[in-house]
Nucleic acid binder design. Structure first.
Lengths: 180, 180
DNA sequence: TACAATTTTCACAAATTACTGAAAGTTCGA
DNA sequence: TCGAACTTTCAGTAATTTGTGAAAATTGTA
C-alpha cells in the first residue's frame, strides 16, 4: 500500500496531535490514514503504509473500535476485515465529543459530587467545597451541551457552529424575547 | 503544609485527569491544590503537600506559568514567591480553552491549509483533500467559537452554557426571525 | 473436522517521559 | 559587594508508555 506525500504529512501531523488527544501517536496516524483514504483498509495495508507491526495495528484497531470511530466491513470473497471512517465528518466529531465525555467528564463529575456530599468541617474544606461546586456546575453545563449536540443533525450542528460571532447577539435577542 | 483527606482525593483525581489534558499527572495535582486552597502557596508548601521534589515543583510552576493558569504574588516581609489561581472559575476555563486552541487547533489548521494549497494530482489526493477541507471548515468554526468565548464576560458565558437544551430551540427562533 | 487464513494476546524490549539531587544562577538586603 | 535566601537548570535515573515477534486463539470453508 503506497501512500502519497500529502497523506504522509497529514498522517504525521495527526500522529502528533493524537498524543494530545488521549489517543497516542500511532493511533492518531492510523485514524488519519483511514479518514483520508476512500477505500476501506485492512490491517496489513495499514501496517505497511505506516511501517508499524501487524500486532500494533491490531491493538490500535481495538482501541479505535472502543472509541466507535471506525466501521468494520467485509469485502465479498475476501476473508480480511476492512475498516473505514464515517463519511460524515460531523459524525466523527460527535462521536469524539461523546467518548471523551464518557471517559473524562463523567468520572470527574462523579468525583466532584462525592466531594460535595462530604461534611466540610474545617474552613479549608469549606473553601475547597465552594470551588468544587463551581467546577461541578460548569462541567455539568458542558455535559448538558454535549448531550444536546448528540441529538443534533449534522446540518443543524453546522448551522450552529457557523453562527460564530453571532452567538453573542443571539443571546441578547433571546433576552429581549423573554422580556416581552 | 497539611492537606485534608478531601483535598487529597480531589488532587489525586485531577492528577489522573491532568494526563488526559496535555498536562501531566504532577501538573494536574499541583493545579488542583492551588485551585482548592484559598491562600497563595509557595513552592515549598506544594512540594511538601504533594510529596514531590522541590525541583519538580519548580518545573511544574514554570509550565503552569506558560499556560497563564497561575498568578504570582508576593507576601510582604517574605522573599518567597506565592502562587494562586484566579478566583473566577470561568476565567480559568477561558484560559484553558484559549491555550489549548493555541497549542493544538492553530497548528492543525495551518497544516490543513497547507495541504489544501497543494495541487492534488492523483485521485487519492483529491479525496484526501476533500476530507481535509471538511476538517478544516469544522475546526475553523470551532476556532471562531473559542474566539467568541474569549470576549464574553463570565456572566454571559454562564448564561450561554445554562441555555443547555434551549440552544436547539434558540436556533429555530433565529431562523424564524431571519425569515420574517 | 481439519486446516489454512486471519486476528488477538502477551511477555519482553525499546522509546519516551517524568522525577530527582546537586550544582549553578538570581535576587535582595546589609 | 557579600552572603543568605530562594529559584532554576540539568544530567542521570526511574517510571511509564508504546511497539514487537512469537505463540495462541478464532474464523470460515472444504
Amino acid at each position: 500500500m503506497k501512500i502519497t506525500p500529502m497523506t504522509q504529512s497529514l498522517v504525521l501531523h495527526f500522529g502528533e496531535m493524537g498524543s494530545r488527544w488521549g489517543l497516542n501517536r500511532t493511533l492518531g496516524q492510523m485514524y488519519a490514514l483511514i479518514v483520508l483514504t476512500e477505500a476501506p483498509l485492512n490491517a496489513d495495508q495499514i501496517s505497511e503504509a505506516l511501517q508499524i507491526s501487524r500486532s500494533n495495528v491490531s491493538m490500535g484497531l481495538k482501541e479505535l473500535k472502543s472509541w466507535n470511530l471506525i466501521k468494520l466491513q467485509h469485502i465479498p470473497g475476501d476473508r480480511k476485515e476492512y475498516f473505514s471512517a464515517p463519511s460524515d465528518i460531523w459524525e466523527i466529531a460527535r462521536t469524539l465529543v461523546l467518548e471523551r465525555r464518557k471517559r473524562e467528564l463523567d468520572p470527574t463529575l462523579s468525583t466532584l459530587r462525592d466531594a460535595l456530599m462530604e461534611q466540610a468541617t474545617s474552613e479549608a474544606d469549606q473553601y475547597a467545597q465552594m470551588r468544587v461546586k463551581q467546577m461541578h456546575d460548569l462541567l455539568e453545563m458542558v455535559t448538558l451541551w454535549t448531550t444536546e449536540l448528540q441529538g443534533m443533525s449534522s446540518d443543524k450542528l453546522a448551522a450552529l457552529l457557523k453562527l460564530g460571532e453571532g452567538i453573542s447577539k443571539l443571546l441578547d435577542v433571546k433576552d429581549k424575547l423573554l422580556l416581552r
